[in-house]
Simulated scan of single mutants.
Amino acid sequence: MIEYTATCAIDEDDTVTAMRSENRVELEPSSRASVFLDPGPARTFARGILALADEIDGGEAEEARAIRVGDRVEIVRAERWSSAEEGRVGVVGTVDEDDDHLPYRVVDEHGVYIAWCAEVRRVDEPAEDAGPEPTPSPFARYVDEAKGLLEGTDHTATDVIILARELHESA
C-alpha cells in the first residue's frame, strides 16, 4: 500500500499520513495535535493526495485529452518535483496516451524539457514575459527514464514517481 507522510515543521513527532482506503483517501494524524507544514513539504504532500485520488477515479478532465503535440500550453499541474514550473508556458512535446496521470511532456520553444504534466491549459497567444530560464528539475531525467522503463505496462503516476525515486537513489 502506498502512503504519503508529512512531518510537522514544529514537532517532528507529529505527522499526518495519506493512504488509499478502498475508494477513498484516508488522512491519519499521528496524534490529536495539529500538523504544521512548510510550503514545500505541504505541496509534496498535497500532490501525493492528488495521486491517490487520481488512482481512485482517474482524475483527468475530459477536455484535457484534446491537447496535441505542438500546442502552446500553460502548465497547471506538473509532476511533484516540478511544481515550480506550474504557471509556466511551453509547448507540448509528447502526449503519452497510455499514461492517465502524467500524459504531457512540455518543452520550451527550443525543445528543452520543462516537466511531465498531469494538467495543462492551451493558450492562444505567446506569453508576454515568460521570465528567466528556469533550472531544469534534477529529477526530470529519472522521471523520463522511469516512464521509458514502464512503457507498455499498466502503470500509474505513483509507479513512475516511485521508480524515478529509486533510480535517483541508486545513481
Rank of each mutant, 00 (worst) to 15 (best):
I2R: 13
A6C: 04
I10Y: 01
I10H: 03
M19F: 03
R20Y: 00
N23E: 12
R24Y: 01
V25P: 03
E26T: 04
P29I: 06
G40L: 13
A42R: 15
F45Y: 09
G48Y: 00
A51G: 05
L52T: 01
D54I: 01
E55I: 10
G58Y: 00
E63Q: 10
A64V: 04
A64W: 03
A64P: 00
I67E: 00
R68Y: 01
R68H: 12
D71T: 05
I75N: 09
E79G: 14
R80V: 10
S82Y: 03
S82Q: 15
S82T: 13
S82V: 10
S83K: 10
G87F: 02
R88L: 11
G90K: 05
V91P: 01
V95G: 05
D96V: 08
D98W: 01
R105M: 06
R105Q: 11
V106K: 09
V107Y: 04
H110W: 06
A118S: 15
A118P: 00
E119W: 06
V123I: 10
A127W: 00
A127K: 05
A130P: 05
T135I: 15
P138Y: 13
R141Q: 14
V143P: 04
G148E: 14
A157V: 06
I162A: 11
R165N: 11
L167M: 10
H168L: 09
S170E: 11
A171E: 14
